[in-house]
């Protein structure tokens, strides 16, 4: 499997990572090498094998749907790069 520059640019956009144009070529090479490496999985017969969903042999616990904690607005916001009036500040999203 080999990825071209356009595909890498598309993935980078999906992942919201800005990759300069002059790095796309190298990155395409790296990613292609990794994808060729993982291609060996096709040799494994996985017919009738269930995909693993949990390594631990346990069911997820259930709990009551209740509010038991919270009220930390200021602590949560304390790490925001830009905040105002109890909110995060971002560039305008809606015109």
């Amino acid at each position: 499997m080999s990825l071209d520059k356009a595909t890498v640019a598309k993935i980078a956009h999906l992942a919201r990572i800005k990759v300069p144009d002059d790095e796309l070529e190298d990155l395409a090479g790296d990613l292609s090498r990794i994808l060729s490496f993982v291609e060996q999985l096709n040799e494994v017969d996985t017919k009738d094998v269930a995909p693993m969903t949990s390594v631990a042999a346990q069911k997820l616990r259930r709990r009551k749907d209740e509010v038991t904690d919270g009220g930390y607005r200021d602590a949560v916001l304390s790490n925001g790069p830009e905040t105002a009036e109890g909110f995060y500040v971002v560039p305008k999203v809606v015109e």
Partner: peptide
Amino acid sequence: LKAQKVRTRIK
């Protein structure tokens, strides 16, 4: 999905 099936095999 293939990788998670191989993971089952490994387990």
